[in-house]
Design a protein around this nucleic acid. Structure first.
Lengths: 339, 339
DNA sequence: CAAGAAAATGTAAAGGTTTACATTTTCTTG
DNA sequence: CAAGAAAATGTAAACCTTTACATTTTCTTG
């Protein structure tokens, strides 16, 4: 690999001049500029980002860190895509790590990002893990929370309005005549699950429907859990006529279980899922499920722009961006039922 | 951020001793080791990977670059997951870039990876772009090709046996009695598409069925193309009774189009798709499609191990790993039909 | 054209680490 | 305990850039 020195000696100038030619061409005679450029081309020289990074004090390393539970979850894939697109157009590169909600892996990854001195980090936090974030804070590395929020707004955050999303879903079911509506959601430590449950309860209350604890099931965000919880819910003495599934994995679990139990959707049980599937894949499902769709790609974009702006202006107070989800009505709720 | 110097002065030793304590504890008195460790803990010191990388000559930067068309494609998501898992357990970090099959974006990304002096790169090449790879070669950065192969085996490669996969699929259809089998595949510049078509043709030949060019459609790997090509194929005078879709996006496009045209699967047209869907999502489709399943996660793992071993031993001759795909028989081909 | 200002270029330090080599300390053994 | 070997530690250079400051060149203008 050619270095600045190689170029400078080939061009017959000092390394400072070469550096300047690259970073601030206006500060250099057209003549030198030309000579240097020729040398650069001849040698195929590219500045080492590593060396550059070491030198430039608070200058950009132009790397962003992204930590997510699992890239195979279409929600996070879409999120990452949004992040990467904005990052790439702004000349930033992405470091990606999957941590499977495992706190050990997570803190190891955050540690790595710190030692890589990335310019910023985007990740969905779990309540109470402010420690990791503070660690980054102290190292002067800005953080943007996505999808979930912290208890206190310590850093920029981009989420969707989960309460509104769940409320829309449940209200839809109520308007269709349902009174016994079950909720199968994720762990309440993650803020989004908590909020969705809150939206569920609010919608019921607003329509004067009592909240029946038997109809509320919470577990981890896995498909397996979706199955188990569905079984549990359908086994109670007076089972629900409609279900709200708290995330995409659970939606699939619920659908699979109902199919197994020969319970038809929407005839016997109506279903609204949270999180849409990519590629209009939902349309290929049987039946195409009505879902609460989050603008996931947007979340990624906004989060990244927020991060870039904070890198510019580190002292700006933390911002909270709340995007609105949308109810995609498809076939899993049927049409109005009487009573 | 505390530096070596901070630690050394706090511990009352030289920076060299601190460095040694970290990298080769055996070369240091238990007593100093203890002092240094205490200082490190007190200061929360972590070595800067950036500085380390600059110094260590051909030592590891412990970063791997991964370039893919689109992380939202479940195939690549699964691939990346395999890569990341192996990387992470070996202490490597991943840089990820989506390039949408765009050569400009791709070469820009490869350039970035070079200037980041990553330890190695994993990516699915397109025929004829050996240039980019050579560039990395010259910079001494090893490359592993996945999913697709180059014309000449210049670097380690991990693929599945696409010919065998397509052949299995088509043979299955032939055994079910089909004679007019259409092929809707991706662009022949990518080796996997080329090979799948080859497998398709071979299977027909082996059963003495003439190849009808009208039944072969090729386009980009998008869902839209899947739609267009399906329309084209079903509009010919003597349309096929069975279809092989060349990749996951196309499979979905085909299914959607057939549904639109009220053509039932498998009654009116049998279908085999290439690439399975994650999360057993295929089971939720209507009908669950028979697919050729690649061991995608495995590909990622193998590729990464291959890359790590090459980093260890740069001179080893290039290896080709071919994994076997599997035919997942589900409902989209129906059962045997007579004639 | 002189002289001072402005522009271009050069010199050298700094950034945080690793490591070859030099120096000091500890150990071994006669 | 002396003296030489072995072990531990220290010193300083190197990795490649950027950039403050110094120096040289070019330009401006009276």
């Amino acid at each position: 690999m050619a270095t600045l020195l190689d170029v400078s000696s080939k061009a017959g100038v000092s390394i400072a001049t070469v550096s300047r030619t690259i970073n601030k061409p206006s500060s250099v005679t057209p003549m030198t500029r030309h000579k240097v450029q020729a040398a650069i081309d001849a040698l195929g020289y590219r500045p080492s980002r590593v060396a550059r990074r070491l030198r430039v004090e608070h200058g950009s390393t132009h790397i962003l860190g992204v930590i997510i539970p699992d890239i195979q979850n279409p929600f996070f894939a879409e999120l990452v895509r949004g992040i990467e697109d904005v990052a790439q157009t702004n000349g930033y590169t992405l470091i990606l790590a999957n941590v499977d909600e495992d706190p050990v892996r997570q803190s190891r990854c955050l540690e790595t990002l710190r030692t890589e001195s990335v310019d910023g980090v985007i990740f969905p936090p779990v309540t109470g893990e402010n420690a990791s974030i503070r660690m980054l804070h102290e190292a002067g590395i800005p953080v943007v929370c996505v999808d979930r929020r912290m208890d206190t707004l310590e850093c920029d955050t981009v989420v969707t309005d989960n309460i509104a999303g769940a409320k829309k879903a449940v209200t839809h079911l109520i308007q269709l005549g349902h009174r016994r509506i079950g909720y199968i959601g994720g762990m309440p430590i993650v803020s989004s699950s908590r909020e969705r449950r809150m939206g569920y309860e609010t919608a019921l209350q607003e329509h004067g429907i009592p909240i029946d604890p038997d109809l509320i099931c919470e577990g981890t965000r896995s498909k397996e859990q979706g199955r188990t919880l569905t079984h549990a819910l359908m086994d109670i003495s007076h089972p629900p006529t409609a279900l709200l599934a708290g995330n995409n994995l659970m939606t699939l679990g619920v659908m699979a279980t109902l199919r197994e139990r020969q319970i038809t959707i929407p005839e016997q049980v109506a279903l609204v899922g949270y999180d849409d599937l990519p590629w209009n894949l939902a349309l290929a499902l049987n039946p195409p499920p009505t879902t609460v769709r989050q603008p996931t790609y947007q979340i990624g974009c906004r989060a990244t722009r927020l991060l870039l702006s904070r890198i510019e202006e580190p002292q700006r107070p933390p911002t909270l961006v709340v995007l609105q989800p949308e109810l995609k009505i498809r076939a899993s709720c049927g049409s109005y039922i009487t009573q």
